[in-house]
Design a binder for these strands. Sequence first.
DNA 1: ATTATTGCAAAGACTTTGCAACTCC
DNA 2: GGAGTTGCAAAGTCTTTGCAATAAT
Lengths: 146, 146
Amino acid sequence: MDQGDYQILLKEKGLKVTPQRLAVIEAVDVLNDHPTAEEVSMYIRKQHPNIATGTVYKTLDTLTEKNIIKRVRTDRGLLRYDAVKDNHHHIYCTQCDRIEDYYDSELTDMIYGYFEKNRIPDFKIEDIKLEIVGRYTDNRESVRKK
Amino acid sequence: MDQGDYQILLKEKGLKVTPQRLAVIEAVDVLNDHPTAEEVSMYIRKQHPNIATGTVYKTLDTLTEKNIIKRVRTDRGLLRYDAVKDNHHHIYCTQCDRIEDYYDSELTDMIYGYFEKNRIPDFKIEDIKLEIVGRYTDNRESVRKK
DNA sequence: ATTATTGCAAAGACTTTGCAACTCC
DNA sequence: GGAGTTGCAAAGTCTTTGCAATAAT
């Protein structure tokens, strides 16, 4: 995705196109490691020292509401963000606080298929995602400490 | 579960049995609505006005580490807790901030079965859970506001 | 007796808010 | 021109910490 795509995305959702918003979308897209709000904020400060932290938070909220980005669920109480991509699941490492994407359309289809046959009463499913929790058994370094 | 069970649980994990810990376990167990740390803290204060908030947080941490309770993933930046029960999934309502349990052993078995045939390289799975996101189509009242 | 645990209050981390000034359409 | 956005700094919320006092084994 490039700047042009971002602009179209914003317009489609009825949002004004501002440099701040473009910067936030780009940051979440580039930092595609489920960055925290602060990581996004820091990344942006490098290129646009004039964009206020408060604005980054507000923008992250707005973009989340409009489904341009998503919040990732964590169990540590920090808000993390994710560019909207194809359906994917998340692998949570219990050792290192990393969250990795897990793409597997066979699995995704299987789960959606299951719920087509077994509906949850009075509930409309909008999204299904797997939390796969565990730990890596190779010796790869931990990017973030727990 | 009663007090006696809690005590055994603590001892098994090598933790000293203290009234504070018993109170926290009980609170998470009784408030079985995935309470936030603050909700646990408030509930405890009613019966034990002398238990400090800091202690509740510390205890929640300890119990989580020892797997006596679990943290529930949320996308709103608040820590929530869950008594450890049978394997279950979570239904997240996009309207009302409720998190409900979803028990379905057929589904759970299907997913675990899938991963037995399709392992993730260099990764040891410890837990798999579904995030089912959507909204209720009946008119039940929202317990918590969004 | 020894070591873990608690209470307290202060500090810390992260996020939200209010409002005047400024931009985008 | 007007509604929607932003910057700023202050206020909030939730959580963690340090340490002396206390309680569990």
